[in-house]
Nucleic acid binder design. Structure first.
Lengths: 216, 216, 216, 216
DNA sequence: GATGAATGAGGGTTCATTCAT
DNA sequence: TATGAATGAACCCTCATTCAT
């Protein structure tokens, strides 16, 4: 009879009242539905079903649909940032390191899950301007920032010609990812095959290094 | 006497049933609402109001919401394509022509109207896959195609180094537009000022030409 | 340019303003749709289409949907009455005459067209009480009345036992038609085959005549 | 403590999801409106109002209007069948038993509630063919079947002449009920007074027994 | 007379949200 | 905490009817 035993939020989390397995469960269901249908197209009913909880429970963990969406984005954002940060250059040559980075960046970005998230966010920008900026900073901008650091060092130690490393980072990303990204965004093409991806990246690298590599 | 002028489905467009002032009026209202709210967020009621017609009238001109949306996209696509085709290189130097093209392309793409349309399309890709591809082909791809022609000629007459002009076109567009586009897409930045735009384009051009320009 | 030639209502009808080919055309379309969908289920749009006229024209000939329906029923009623009146006993024996009458009555009533009309009327009785009574009088009652005359004579000339000819008429119709009618009304059975119809009628006649035939 | 009693979908019916007081409430409101307006004429709004629930609640208990209608018919059918089965012959003479059956059958059928239901069903036969057949089997046919059993026994024990008891049942029902039924169906007459009903039944019985009673 | 574009009320249905349990 | 029944506003769409031509 006592409710004690059933009390959740036990473990360690409970940052703002309740963070728990159930909260995660809801976010997982919400992610699935929001990705597939967009913000407006997703119904709380569908989310509850996908999460395997009752509709009422949704409102125990989240104030309303907006908040659920925003929390979900924050979540996605965290994961995206973590994935980006996880990349560790391991190859021997400078070019190979850049190549590996570009390839794994491309792979991350064009994954169908990620593209769905991006579309979901982009489609909601008008209604949730903050969400768009948030996501952008976690994704594109974070990638640029990491590269900027790398390029800053490379300029400092003379591997790259003297230049604004931020601009270089933008150029690198543009050359190696924008074509693939654009197509994926519009659903206009299937994910490139590994061979295509390699070719695209190599082409980009040629141009990039032709300009930025120090001519000693 | 002459009923000719007033006749709906008359001279100009009239692909099928009726094309008329009212049809245009509805499309204008629909564009406004779809851009602001996305496909799912837009209500036929709101569209009717924005268009200044009754809800019933919407259904005289369009079978249903889907069709209205698709027609609107087709419309947007036509306008976008026309705007791209309208560009005529007029400057004296090769670099200046590319510069002018890049600037006007950037301006076209980052116009708030256009960005809203893109977001609307991207947000609807999951439900209307064809619409995404359609839009992509009318926009990004068409721009690339035009450039490919230009670069093909330039390779032929020796101004550019021997290379695949399609790849060159992708690289050019990526270098000169992707940064601005990405930010605009996520609503993460205001439109760049003319000075910023010029700087971005010039940076891109430096890299591009450094690689692609024929070395005497 | 003159409208003279096109002026309708020319022929001879024009009982109450305009009766014409077009009016007939409309009623034919209306009959088709009302039968298929019932009063509420029929849309003026569908009727206009079925009649091959514009929706506006409907309102030139009929005040509104109700009136169109009522006029249609009046029409049907007239045709039903005419069909009943058209029956002429021609056989030699009394029994054969009754048999022929019952068979043709059954055939008339269970025709799919007629059944649809009856269902349409029955379904509308609650909203149009007068229509039900009207139809009943033109159909069932008129059949009974005709038979009552026949039976009155037969009682008078000694072929039938002394009895109330109205009651006899009811019994005759009940015995020979009610089973088939009921099933048809509910759509619970296909129309009986000619053999079945004959058997049913003969069974009914046996009972009827067993009681009503003068015992010499 | 005991949540048992209040639990929806509890003891009694509960064929599938939930059967409850509220479900009954809705069916009652629906019956009222469907009877009065027919299937097409009844609006879910009106039904909700009549049932005293919100429109949304309708859709918690029934998938859609069609299903609500069909469930209602199934309900009516059950009640009708129960009413018919409930009849227990109690009188002393064979004739009196038949008389009592005919009178109560007439009373059941011509009750305004029942007639409304029949009209509702008949009016919907074109759209719901199954519903018509269902209702027919529960009503007219079930009555016939019961009588067939009775007559079968009566033939067996020599009270009735040798004959097909099914045909006899049809004849009995036709003679005693069809006149009243037909008028009621078309709303062409008020319910007969008890005296009229008795007269009609007695007239029918005379004819029926004249033929079917065993001649000693 | 005949048309069909235009209307806005109302159709069936879904929705985000609340609340008693 | 977790539920799911209940709500009523809002959804897309159809309707009977009107009216300028």
């Amino acid at each position: 009879m006592s409710k004690v035993a059933a009390q959740p939020g036990g473990s360690a989390a409970g940052v703002e009242g309740h963070d728990s397995e159930k909260r995660r469960q809801i976010l997982d269901g919400a992610r699935e539905v929001f990705r597939a249908k967009g913000y407006e197209g997703a119904s709380m009913d569908a989310i509850a079903k996908a999460a395997g909880v009752s509709k009422g429970t949704l409102y125990v963990y989240f104030t309303n649909k907006d908040e659920l969406f925003e929390q979900l984005i924050a979540d996605e954002k965290r994961e995206l940032a973590a994935a980006l940060d996880a990349f560790q250059p391991a190859a021997e040559s400078f070019r190979d390191n850049l190549r590996a980075f570009a390839l794994s960046f491309n792979e991350l970005l064009t994954g169908e899950n990620h593209m769905s998230s991006i579309r979901m966010v982009v489609g909601a920008v008008e209604k949730f301007p903050a969400v768009g900026a948030l996501f952008f900073r976690a994704g594109a901008e974070r990638g640029t920032t990491r590269l900027t650091e790398v390029f800053g060092e490379a300029v400092a130690d003379g591997r790259l010609r003297p230049c604004d490393p931020t601009v270089a980072a933008h150029h690198f990303i543009a050359l190696c990812t924008s074509e693939v990204m654009k197509k994926a965004l519009f659903g206009a093409a299937l994910r490139p095959t590994p061979e295509e991806a390699i070719r695209i990246v190599d082409n980009g690298l040629d141009v990039f290094l032709s300009y930025y590599l120090a001519k000693d």
